[in-house]
């Protein structure tokens, strides 16, 4: 590259440190405790994911999480063959959008299965050592 013509630059801050919000923090804590929860709106009574401190439907303040049955339904899925850099994965992975009955929204997560299908009932496979991350669920598996 001719230096006089081009000025290369990498536009990255070294690190971002994001906050999860007060309700999001509680949600992550419940994951660490091995519980699946959803945000509960006291006004419209909806349960929803992702958790946040306001109801996206009516703008009401949300403080409470309610435990939900850890059984979801695959709404749609894909099969990942390559990694972020385009290299083939050792093992192909199923990534699904999972909805939980009575809950608005849902979760994207891995599903360990050879035969994924829409409508498949799945449950979380919890890690033994949990850190308060969505990856405390290692993957979902057929329920």
């Amino acid at each position: 590259m001719r230096r006089v013509k081009y000025f290369p630059e990498v536009m990255e801050i070294e690190a971002y440190v994001y906050t999860a919000g007060p309700v999001g923090t509680k949600w992550l804590e419940s994951l660490r405790a091995g519980k699946l929860t959803a945000a509960y709106c006291p006004k419209c009574g909806r349960l929803f994911l992702p958790p946040k401190m306001y109801c996206p439907f009516d703008f009401e303040e949300v403080k409470e999480l309610r435990e939900i049955a850890p059984v979801g339904v695959v709404e749609t899925y894909t099969v990942v063959e390559r990694d972020f850099y385009g290299e083939p994965l050792k093992e192909r992975r199923v990534l699904a959008f999972i909805k939980f009955p009575g809950v608005e929204g849902g979760l994207i997560h891995y599903v360990k299965t050879d035969k994924p299908r829409v409508g498949m009932k799945v449950k979380p496979k919890w890690r033994d050592e949990r850190k308060g991350l969505v990856t405390d669920i290692e993957y979902f598996e057929e329920a």
Partner: peptide, 8 residues
């Protein structure tokens, strides 16, 4: 630094 997310 506030705990709330930007949306919140």
């Amino acid at each position: 630094k506030l705990l709330e997310t930007p949306q919140e």
